[in-house]
Write a protein that binds this DNA or RNA. Structure first.
Length: 577
DNA sequence: GCCGTTTTCGGCCCGACTGTTTTCAGTCG
């Protein structure tokens, strides 16, 4: 194997090839490269490892990857480069990917800038703009130059996508304010926020109103809106104070369903829907579903999907993969509903690195409608958090007894986030673990073990007869830490075999990734969704955990903490063989 | 370059907005 080729780099190369092809007006191929790139972008498993294990046939199941792109990927994985890309790069040696990230600059403009100004990097381009060279390029002008310079400044300051945990509350606050504007009948989130992608690149809001001018004025004057980029009667593009851009789309109330689908996306999902409509001799756009010039009476999303012969598809599944085929066969399951959790099995307190007492955390959990909560403070191997040893753990049990006596309506469970040591043994003695209601385990050290060794280490821990739940199973933190190297298919099978439940962690870890959740669902490996709260405010993470589960096609029955305490404990013990 | 509930060949999504243009191309979602 040559240079390490990770999925991120493969996706970049496929996207850049697509841009070069678009710039040269090549028909249809760019779309093919983009679809393949999106398919790979949604995977958590590295193609290079899949390829090592299964060879080229591991590429068969990726939507949009056919014979030719499969060869390209094989070339990338084995040699670290590909002929198709090298040829393009040699002909046009400039940073196409970076230029195209500038708002309002696409592949054609990017290529034009390179050809006329011989600029290769963003820095070159910025210099050319400052020297007023861009405005003299035929087809561009002063306004374009200003826009490009502003765009580059924006790129420098914003740093691309943000985690949904930061963006969702920000966007919901705007939605609430806009709903109060006179004449407004609907305001909703659309785009990647509604699909609950783990990172968000822009914020899309959609609305209907009897008084469009009032709504547009109110939107422009929101404190969150710092700059208006475009302002038509139906569409406004702005930049928000969070450092992201976004749109407000004002829809015809008679076409709210089709508008909602259109602006929810994904782009790839929409293309598949419109192709399907076309095959039925219909035309689909944000304005409705049309037969000839007549608009069919479609008011809701459900009606639209039905008219296309499909089950309604929840936004979280609209990725442009296999969801449309399964919807045609009526095989979209009832996903786990938001708000359906009855307990939270991972909560830290001020006994270690949490900010609040057991009692305060319990009251916060109860206020959110939960009826049980597991206290999972760290164990002694994690010295920097003041992890508990056996003696302190038993002391903590007494405090939990005290809180349980005092508190009605919520049961605090004695638990632990027990460290899995390097060799797969546990950080606490069985005698202490036996005093607990349930035992959770996780990894916080030796992240860099070779894959085989890491897998054996984890499986040894799962085999331990007292272990119930494996927390944040891959160690990832969105945007900050890559997952450790581990054979997840083996872990998922072992969890099922030994009756251990895998956690979906709703904090900024979002661990498990949805790809593995779907594998768990298929394998019959049970799941729980936890907040990993270190503070009373963190129970809101549960919602992100549910979104994650939904993206992984999980149903209520797959997630054990949707059950009342008694049934949960029965399922947890029965799950153990 | 991909794909199949009319297809292994012949198709391949739709409209709003802007800028630099005298009628349209490029970008975006």
């Amino acid at each position: 194997m040559a240079k390490q080729m990770n999925n991120r780099r493969i996706v970049e190369i496929l996207r850049e090839i697509a841009l070069y092809l678009r710039a040269q007006d090549v028909a249809f191929k760019p779309q093919a490269y983009e679809v393949a790139a999106e398919g790979i972008a949604g995977m958590e498993t590295e193609l290079s490892t899949l390829y090592k294990a299964y060879g080229k046939k591991c590429l068969d199941d990726i939507p949009g990857v056919g014979a030719s792109i499969a060869e390209t990927i094989e070339e990338l994985v084995t040699t670290g480069n590909t002929r198709a890309y090298q040829v393009l790069k040699k002909k046009y040696p400039f940073d196409m990917l970076a230029f195209s990230r500038i708002p309002e600059v696409g592949p054609k403009t990017a290529l034009l800038l390179y050809k006329k100004l011989h600029v290769k990097t963003l820095r070159d381009l910025e210099r050319a703009g400052s020297a007023h060279k861009i405005e003299n390029v035929p087809g561009l002008g002063h306004k374009s130059e200003q826009k490009i310079l502003r765009g580059i400044a924006f790129l420098k300051s914003s740093g691309e996508r943000r985690i949904i945990h930061d963006v969702l509350p920000f966007a919901q606050h705007m939605v609430e304010n806009l709903r109060r504007v006179e004449g407004v009948t609907h305001v909703d989130l659309a785009g990647s926020l509604r699909r609950r992608k783990e990172t968000i690149g822009d914020i899309d809001l959609i609305a209907t109103t009897r008084k469009p001018k009032e709504l547009i004025r109110a939107f422009k004057s929101l404190p969150e809106v710092v700059r208006v980029l475009k302002a038509g009667p139906q569409k406004l593009a702005v930049r928000f104070s969070l450092g992201l851009g976004g749109d407000l789309l004002v829809l015809d109330p008679n076409a709210y369903g089709t508008g909602l689908v259109h602006f929810t996306g994904s782009r790839e999902h929409n293309i598949l829907l419109r192709e399907l409509a076309q095959k039925k001799h219909l035309k689909l756009s944000e304005h409705g579903l049309f037969r000839g010039k007549t608009r069919l009476a479609i008011r809701t999303e459900e009606q639209l999907y039905r008219a296309l012969g499909l089950q309604w598809i929840p936004p979280e599944l609209r990725v442009g993969g296999d969801e449309i085929g399964l919807a045609r066969q009526k095989k979209i399951p009832a996903l786990i509903p938001y708000g359906s959790l009855q307990g939270d099995l991972q909560v830290q307190t001020d006994w270690t690195d949490g900010t609040a007492s057991i009692e305060d955390m319990a009251r916060a959990a109860k206020a959110l409608g939960l009826s049980y909560m597991g206290v999972t403070d760290h164990t002694k191997a994690l010295t920097m958090t003041g992890g508990l040893d056996e003696r302190r753990l038993i002391q903590q049990g007494k405090e939990i007894d005290r809180v349980n006596k005092k508190l009605r309506g919520l049961r605090v469970l004695k638990s632990t986030e027990c460290d899995i040591l390097k060799d797969g043994s546990l950080d606490l003695h069985d005698t202490a673990l036996k005093t607990l209601d349930l035992v959770c385990v996780s990894i916080h050290s030796h992240f860099a073990l070779p894959k085989r060794e890491m897998t054996e280490r984890i499986i040894r821990a799962l085999k331990h007869p007292l272990v119930n739940i494996f927390l944040h199973p891959t160690g990832r933190v969105v945007g900050r830490r890559e997952p450790y190297q581990v054979e997840m298919d083996r872990v998922i099978r072992a969890a099922r075999e030994y009756g251990v439940v895998l956690e979906i962690n709703g904090s900024e870890r979002l661990d498990l990734h949805e790809e593995y959740i779907r594998q768990c669902v298929d394998a019959g490996t049970k799941l729980v969704i936890n907040s990993d709260a270190h503070d009373p405010r963190h129970f809101s993470h549960l919602d992100h955990g549910i979104a994650q589960a939904r993206k992984g096609w999980a149903r209520k029955a797959d997630v054990l903490n949707t059950r009342p305490l008694k049934a949960f404990m029965v399922a947890l013990k029965k799950n153990r063989v």
